[in-house]
């Protein structure tokens, strides 16, 4: 179904068309909320709020940007609001001061890390320890494969800042991987 047609049907009150939209964009919304919020139940609540907002505000969508970007923007704002309501300082979402490699990795003997699954587990843990904003940007760029412009629209961050986040995230992972001497040649 064409995007404009889908939007018109939803505005007209077609709930089946809305179900189709949810199916299409639930992954993107869960990615954004999931990278910023820890608890699965909270993630689900936030995602529900996002889609309720989408349903209510769809008549106000000006169709100047892609629908995915608009939905992503709502998801990002709702997640930020949720974090703010929980009293978590927003600086904590991007601060690298508290970043340290997980104890799980520290306990591992580098010589024991031999299988691909173990290596993936290490990188997953390193990513999980990154501040929320870094994880969100990484996820939008690498998993949802959005362009800088689209991520810029969603997060309201300038392109330079986004590039800097991606660069710093790469550097951090690189440092940690080298520090822990994780064998990575099979990825390359």
């Amino acid at each position: 179904m064409e995007e404009n047609q889908l939007i018109d049907q939803i505005i007209g009150g077609n709930t089946n068309a809305f179900r189709f939209l949810v199916k299409k964009y639930e992954r993107l919304v869960f990615h954004i909320a999931g990278r910023m919020i820890d608890q699965q139940a909270d993630i689900e609540d936030v995602c529900q709020d996002v889609f309720i907002k989408v349903y209510k505000k769809l008549p106000e969508f000006r169709r100047e940007s892609k629908l995915s970007t608009w939905i992503g923007t709502i998801a990002y704002r709702v997640a930020i609001d949720f974090i703010r309501k929980r009293g978590i300082p927003l600086q904590d979402l991007e601060s690298l001061n508290t970043y340290n490699s997980s104890s799980l990795i520290d306990k591992k003997d580098p010589e024991e890390i031999k299988t691909q699954a173990e290596r993936i587990e290490i990188v997953k843990t390193l990513i999980a320890d990154l501040p929320a904003i870094y994880k969100t940007v990484l996820s939008l760029y690498h998993i949802d494969e959005l362009s800088y412009k689209e991520i810029e629209e969603i997060t309201q961050m300038p392109e330079g800042t986004l590039k800097s986040y991606l660069h710093r995230a790469r550097q951090l992972l690189k440092t940690q991987l080298l520090k822990h001497r994780v064998l990575v040649e099979e990825w390359i």
Partner: peptide, 8 residues
């Protein structure tokens, strides 16, 4: 990037 992508 390849590592991040695979892990995520």
């Amino acid at each position: 990037d390849a590592m991040i992508q695979e892990a995520m």
